[in-house]
Design a protein around this nucleic acid. Structure first.
Length: 773
DNA sequence: ATAGGGTTAG
């Protein structure tokens, strides 16, 4: 026999040190060497296989595995791990069964992968059976297996849909643990020699029963495409099932943790993350503190699990504490921690602090980019969000599903349809269409950009719809004044077993309010508390009082607001005040305005509205008085602003902004139009012009409203037949509304105006809202 | 064996 060469020795040492191999080519070189030296023993090939699986090469692993006639345990375990980390839980469990079937005994380093596969399938039953099996083979005290068990339980919940009444999982496990332990202690005490044969036989029999039980369950699992599991996960983690008895799973996690004889940092991190995922705020923070007692310092895993919970609870002081902690540990520029910090600050409306963390972050990945983008968008900084989105693309980071659902609301709010469509194209090309978050945000975007039909098409094609998808569609209909569609959808949603929440009721009430459906609104308002136990919030009261007010039932609305169990806010009263303006009821307006200033002395809207009401009644002195007191408060009202998209570019207008580069051209066109309109019978309604000035001057002021400038700009800059789409950040003014009807008729074009609450479709001299808005 | 980001609301 020849002595091994140095190369052979190297090969052997490499085979026994799998962590030193880091790339596919290294692994393949080693593979070639093994074949060259005819060292392809079963043992060496299994070692190679475990190397392939450690660097996550599923195909190479499988190719090698398939050449083995009787794969040893190491080969099976490698394949199982690889399947799991590739997100193929069925395959993983199948291989596990195959391993058992070939007579091999599972050991401590196979269960983590199998448990993870159970968690992926969201199958608690299966997980519990596996747990029973693990107890039977005596591995429940193993550190790695225990950690994986905790992880599985903390990710699984009792799904409402499974319907079956279940025994408390932890009770069953308690009993089983007790029985197993007695068998085990007995055998330790007596020693293997003295152990009664019947005991061992009984034990082995029990183990094989458990493994068959588990096997039977695996075979029963119906295979679903991967995307569907992701949807299930999305639904499971969604609000609907959030509060359904996850306590049983959490109990199991705690029991395992307490029983574990040896705990390491991973064990602590796992239970902390589990508590955090299940929303146990106090408990989670306590455990982070207790870690110190066990001589363990929080690491990046700990911090990035805790921060989302702090964000959810909007606890800025705790958040800063954790930030401080991460700085002390030198973890504040670590991607995981930093992304959570960015998100936490954003959720606490401290975007400036998010920026700071983001700037300090040197290596940004898709998630850190998305955190800052979502942070901006969620705080209404749409342009900044878009800016970061573009920067991300320039940094050569490919947008993923999260990126689209984060940025889409920005397109929706800014009405930048061209951008939304562009993103939609990218989404379709990359197969993100099925994603429920993206589809919902697309429905919302198209609806908000005026394209209600496309919104409906996308909605109808969705395979799975959750409450948010329905609400987005209902709100879209409400926005366009399609109240009956909105109501029908709302009823359909309930029929499909999806419970409406706070926002869904806002949507349906808004629909009623835009169409003047008083009775329906009452019905839904009462149903909220009676049928669903949701306490109406200010928004719901606002919708109903708005409706009563518009219908001219001012007294009724007044009493309704006075009867609110939660203190009415300025905004609720404001709906009534604007109704007073529509119905020109100065007495009521005075009464309401005083109530507003009682609860909200800084409500500038009230000053302006009241001043306008006085102006309309030609009571100039009082109007001037209110305007003066507004000036004294030193608060500036939100400036009115309108914008329009022409040839993929957005043009913004402020009222009477004569410095606008297009101002002169617009002015000229406006004069021509005004002449034509007056011939058609248009009389400028200057009653709300708040200054006591000449009639000509008033007419001029009315004509320089931002929405009118935007509309005229659109007419002169687009070819005949194009629909003009204008967005305004506040409400469309009464006179502009009348004027736009005339304009639509004269120029023979459709004009769509979206203001802060709804869409107005002007066509042939009429408006879709029937002048009820 | 453990970790971070997403859709509806005037």
């Amino acid at each position: 026999m020849r002595s091994p060469t140095s190369t052979e020795a190297l090969v052997n040492s490499l085979l026994r040190n799998p962590l030193s191999i880091k790339s596919r080519s290294q692994a393949q070189q080693l593979h070639a060497q093994v074949l060259k030296f005819q060292a392809s023993s079963l043992c060496n090939l299994s070692l190679l296989l475990s190397i392939y699986s450690h660097i996550n090469l599923l195909h190479d692993s499988l190719r090698l595995f398939n050449t083995l006639h009787f794969p040893p345990a190491l080969a099976w375990k490698s394949v199982i791990r690889c399947y799991t980390s590739h997100g193929l839980p069925h395959k993983s469990l199948g291989s596990f069964i195959g391993m058992l079937a070939s007579g091999l005994y599972p050991d401590h380093n196979v269960f983590p992968s199998v448990l993870k596969a159970c968690a992926m399938l969201m199958d608690l039953n299966l997980g519990e059976s596996l747990h029973g099996y693990i107890i039977r083979v005596g591995l429940d005290f193993d550190l790695y297996t225990g950690n994986a068990l905790m992880n599985m339980y903390s990710k699984l919940r009792f799904l409402k849909k499974s319907g079956r009444q279940r025994l408390g999982a932890s009770q069953v496990l308690d009993e089983m643990t007790e029985r197993t332990r007695s068998v085990r202690t007995a055998s330790v005490l007596v020693g293997n020699q003295g152990r009664k044969v019947s005991d061992i036989e009984a034990f082995n029999y029990d183990v094989s029963c458990r493994s068959r039980e588990f096997e039977a369950q695996v075979l029963e699992i119906d295979y679903k495409p991967r995307s569907e599991y992701r949807e299930m996960e999305a639904c499971n983690l969604g609000q609907q099932i959030k509060d359904i008895s996850h306590s049983m799973s959490v109990d199991s996690v705690r029991k395992i943790f307490e029983m574990m004889p040896e705990k390491d940092l991973v064990s602590w991190n796992t239970i902390i993350a589990g508590n955090a995922r299940n929303g146990l705020y106090g408990e989670t923070l306590t455990m982070v503190r207790e870690m110190g007692g066990a001589n363990l310092k929080p690491d990046s895993f700990t911090l990035s699990s805790v921060l989302p919970l702090i964000a959810e609870n909007v606890d800025i002081s705790k958040g800063k504490e954790i930030h401080g902690c991460s700085i002390r540990q030198g973890l504040d520029a670590e991607v995981y921690v930093a992304s959570s910090l960015i998100d936490m600050y954003a959720k606490c409306t401290r975007v400036v602090d998010s920026y700071r963390v983001f700037t300090l972050l040197t290596e940004r990945d898709g998630i850190s980019w998305n955190s800052i983008i979502a942070g901006c968008v969620q705080n209404g900084l749409f342009d900044e969000g878009l800016k970061f989105f573009r920067q991300m693309l320039m940094a050569k980071i490919k947008p993923k599903s999260y990126s689209f659902s984060s940025i889409m609301p920005a397109c929706a709010h800014l009405t930048t349809l061209h951008l939304g469509k562009q993103l939609h194209g990218y989404i379709t090309r990359n197969g993100f269409d099925e994603n429920i978050f993206i589809a919902s945000s697309l429905v919302d975007m198209y609806a908000k950009c005026g394209n209600i039909r496309t919104a409906r098409q996308i909605f109808d094609r969705m395979r799975l719809r959750d409450m948010v998808s329905w609400t987005a569609m209902i709100m879209g209909c409400a926005l366009h004044g399609h109240a009956l569609d909105a109501i029908e959808l709302f009823e359909q949603m309930k029929t499909e077993g999806i419970e409406p929440n706070y926002v869904a009721f806002m949507a349906v009430l808004t629909a009623c309010s835009h169409a003047g459906l008083v009775d329906e609104a009452w019905k839904y308002f009462n149903s909220m508390t009676l049928d669903f136990g949701i306490a109406p919030g200010v928004e719901h009261y606002a919708a109903v009082s708005d409706l009563l007010g518009r219908a001219g039932r001012l007294e009724e609305a007044y009493d309704f607001i006075c009867g609110m169990p939660i203190g009415p806010t300025g905004s609720v009263w404001a709906t009534l005040l604007s109704a007073c303006r529509v119905h020109k009821n100065v007495d009521m307006a005075e009464k309401v305005a005083n109530r507003i200033l009682e609860v909200d002395p800084k409500n500038t809207g009230a000053y302006i509205l009241l001043a306008n009401i006085y102006s309309a009644a030609r009571r100039w002195k009082e109007a001037a008085k209110w305007r003066a007191s507004l000036r004294r408060t030193g608060i500036r009202k939100t400036p009115a602003c309108s914008w329009i998209e022409v040839r993929n570019k957005v043009y913004a207008f402020m009222a009477g902004d004569e410095s606008h580069p297009c101002y002169e051209k617009i002015r000229e066109a406006m004069e021509v139009l005004m002449e034509l309109m007056e011939k058609e019978g248009y009389v400028p309604d200057t009653s709300e012009v708040h200054h006591d000035v000449e009639e000509e001057q008033k007419k001029y002021l009315v004509c320089s409203h931002s929405e009118r400038l935007a509309i005229v700009f659109g007419i002169i800059n687009t070819p005949a037949g194009t629909t003009i789409r204008v967005t305004k950040n506040l409400r469309v003014c009464t006179d502009c509304h009348t004027a736009t009807k005339f304009i639509s008729k004269i120029v023979g074009r459709e004009i769509v105006v979206r203001d802060n609450s709804r869409f107005h479709h002007f066509k042939n001299g009429t408006c879709s809202c029937g002048d009820y808005w």
